[in-house]
Amino acid sequence: MKKIVVAIGLSSGLLIQSASADALKNSLSGMLNKKEETPAMVNLNGISLGSKPDRVKPKTRSAKAVIATVNGMEIVKKEADNYLSKRTKGKIKDFDLLPKKQRLALVKELALPMLLAEKAKKELSSEEKDAVLSRVWMQKSVAATNVPDEQVRAAYEKIKAQAKAQSALQQIPPFEAVKDRIKLQIIEQQVVAQLLNGAKIRVEPSSDTIAGYVGMMALTIDEVNKALQIRTNGKMTWATLPEKERKRVLQMVAPAKLIALAAKNGLSNEEQDTALANYWMQKKLSRISVTDEEAKRRYEKIKKMAKRSQNKKKLPEYTELEKSLKMQIAQEKFIEKLTKKAKITLK
């Protein structure tokens, strides 16, 4: 089973933005991108550190033994043992010594990333997949690229001079306020320039489906028309575009195509699964509704538990916790729906 270990973050200015709220993304990223931490949205109440196993086996299965399948995908014992050890902070290290209910609870947790990646691959469009993977690849490239402060300052002064020439100096924010944004733009430009370096862009005049090529890669008329729809608010299409403008338009479309190709070749399978799973999960969570009544019932339940535990720490008011309570309930609904139809079998 592939572990999901890489998170998606801020979107590049060249690529599409996330379809759901940042708050959802931030609250869920722990489940997918930090193996060493307990998942925030999954509750493994079934595991009791003090309980006795159904039966103590003289010999447990080997690390390579398949201990469960999830929709036909296998989970081996080594993965379950490692996860269990981290989940219990080293107090329990052998999956086979857990009672059956606890083994099933653990497998359901391990199954979540697999189910998310499986659903994402089936349900996301090719355009969404390209955009998500391109964003992740671009982030990695940006993180690996350094730009000296002097270069950023020089770019800022150039922008400032241009604004001054146009009598718009009062609209330029202070350097410190825009420094990071300018730095990001410089890095993106450098990355795109490297991709375009040596890539020959040419128009294809004799095709009804191909607008042109960037290197050996075809740019379809449909792809170009989608870009023109955005850039010209639907006023222009490839068919109505003057011939002298066609190569310039291909030059604008080419970077996205090259980045998508670089992402597919440059990201590992695990990184791709993570990015797609995260994005698909955000989309689904953004559509789950939680009523005020549900959140208030959850709050009252927490309030009673706090009272029974005689915790001296004051519980925040409902209004302070409302947003996080609704998010938690939405996450639980999401997990229940995701795992309900999954075929999870213990071995």
Rank of each mutant, 00 (worst) to 15 (best):
L110R: 03
L110C: 06
L110Q: 07
L110Y: 01
M114C: 03
M114H: 01
E118L: 09
K119W: 07
A120D: 07
A120N: 02
K121F: 08
K122L: 13
S126W: 14
S126K: 15
E127I: 09
D130F: 00
L133F: 04
S134P: 00
V136D: 00
W137Q: 04
W137K: 14
M138I: 01
M138R: 03
K140R: 14
S141P: 03
T145P: 02
N146Q: 15
N146R: 07
V147K: 03
P148H: 00
P148D: 11
D149Y: 07
D149L: 03
E150I: 11
V152R: 04
A154M: 01
A155H: 02
A161D: 05
Q166K: 01
Q166A: 06
S167Q: 12
Q170K: 12
P174W: 13
V178M: 07
R181F: 06
R181T: 11
K183A: 02
L184A: 11
L184G: 14
L184F: 14
Q185I: 02
I187L: 04
I187Q: 06
E188T: 05
E188W: 11
Q194C: 02
Q194I: 06
Q194W: 04
L195M: 13
A199S: 10
V203W: 02
P205I: 06
S206A: 15
S206L: 09
S207Y: 08
L219I: 15
T220W: 12
N225L: 05
A227V: 10
I230S: 13
R231D: 15
T232W: 03
G234V: 10
G234W: 06
T237F: 10
L241V: 13
P242H: 06
P242F: 14
K244P: 11
E245A: 00
E245Y: 15
E245G: 11
E245V: 04
R248M: 09
L250Q: 01
M252P: 09
A254Q: 04
P255T: 04
